[in-house]
């Protein structure tokens, strides 16, 4: 048997598992829709997103404005598309900050142990000790509201999450015999981390990313809701919710549409994360 054939079997079984997994499929479908909406908004929206047409204000959903208009006559569907772009953008950067800093810290803590481990883990305890959203509010209040500061604020809270998850899984690997064998083979800690530890914790990090991604979307919506996230005239789902609040009785769709968008994307990402966990975990193959 050739190498490619073997490799092919493994990949095929993973794809087969994915295609049979309902929550993976639903989650992937929702996430792809979200992504498509964000990408489409760069090239096309039914109406210019910041265009105020007072004459058309507070229209319920109709053939021209598919999801209606808000108090300034702006097209809700267009705002939803651009809002998806903002939510995703903030979430991507926030998760990237978390992975970029948290994963190396977690790997280093697991590899070195001792004092470095203690310092890093007590440091992450410290970050965990502050309620995340409240501190994000504080950071944006000090450095000024805006999407960039929201990304950084949310990103900071992702760092200890990824550091913890990575360290836990990596430490378990450091006790395994194949890592011992690599040490007998004279490999340095850094090299063992890159060759053996990281690839074996990667699936865990991917799954955690989807969950953090969902949390970041929620956090961005929360910051925008209190006016500290994405700034007008850029639309964002949280801001749309905040604007809709006073008009719940006369124009309920204004709150329902962005609310559903937030719920759907969080749900979709969580389903995707659950699905990925099963798809990437080769142990399931053996038990079946």
């Amino acid at each position: 048997m050739s190498e490619t054939a073997i490799d092919g079997v493994n990949r095929r079984s993973m794809v087969a598992r994915a295609l049979r997994h309902p929550s993976f499929l639903i989650g992937a479908a929702i996430t792809l829709t979200l992504l498509a909406a964000a990408l489409v908004s760069f090239v096309w929206t039914p109406f210019p997103v910041a265009e105020v047409v007072i004459r058309d204000r507070l229209q319920p959903p109709n053939p021209v404005h598919w999801l209606g208009t808000d108090a300034f006559g702006r097209d809700i569907f267009s705002m939803l598309l651009v809002g998806a772009r903002n939510s995703l953008g903030v979430a991507v950067v926030a998760v990237a900050i978390g992975i970029g800093i948290g994963v190396p810290l977690g790997l280093a803590a697991a590899a070195e142990g001792g004092l470095l481990d203690s310092i890093l883990m007590r440091g992450s305890d410290l970050v965990f000790a502050f309620p995340a959203l409240v501190t994000a509010v504080m950071i944006t209040a000090i450095f000024g509201p805006g999407a960039i500061n929201a990304m950084i604020a949310i990103g900071i809270f992702n760092v200890p999450v990824f550091a913890r998850v990575t360290r836990g899984a990596a430490r378990a690997l450091w006790g395994r015999e194949f890592v011992l064998a690599a040490r007998v083979a004279g490999k340095t800690r850094a090299r063992i981390t890159v060759e053996h530890v990281l690839p074996n914790v990667a699936s865990l990090i991917i799954v955690q990313s989807t969950i953090q991604f969902a949390l970041a979307i929620l956090a961005e919506a929360g910051l925008s809701y209190v006016g500290l996230g994405t700034q007008p005239p850029m639309p964002s789902w949280g801001k749309m919710l905040a604007d809709a609040q006073t008009m719940m009785a006369i124009a309920p769709w204004l709150a329902i549409v962005p609310g559903l968008a937030i719920v759907a994307s969080v749900l979709g990402l969580n389903l995707l994360g659950d699905g990925l966990r099963d798809v990437l975990d080769p142990r399931l193959d053996r038990t079946r």
């Binding site: 015999e177 011992l180 060759e195």
Partner: peptide, 29 residues
């Protein structure tokens, strides 16, 4: 000059590496 064989025939290999890569690991020395 000093190599080792461990007990667990399941745990002593990185599951993501081919046998060739596993066997060749000490050669980088």
């Amino acid at each position: 000059e000093i190599q080792a064989v461990f007990q667990d025939p399941y745990g002593s290999f990185d599951p993501r590496h081919t046998v060739g890569r596993i066997v060749g690991e000490p050669l980088h020395l």
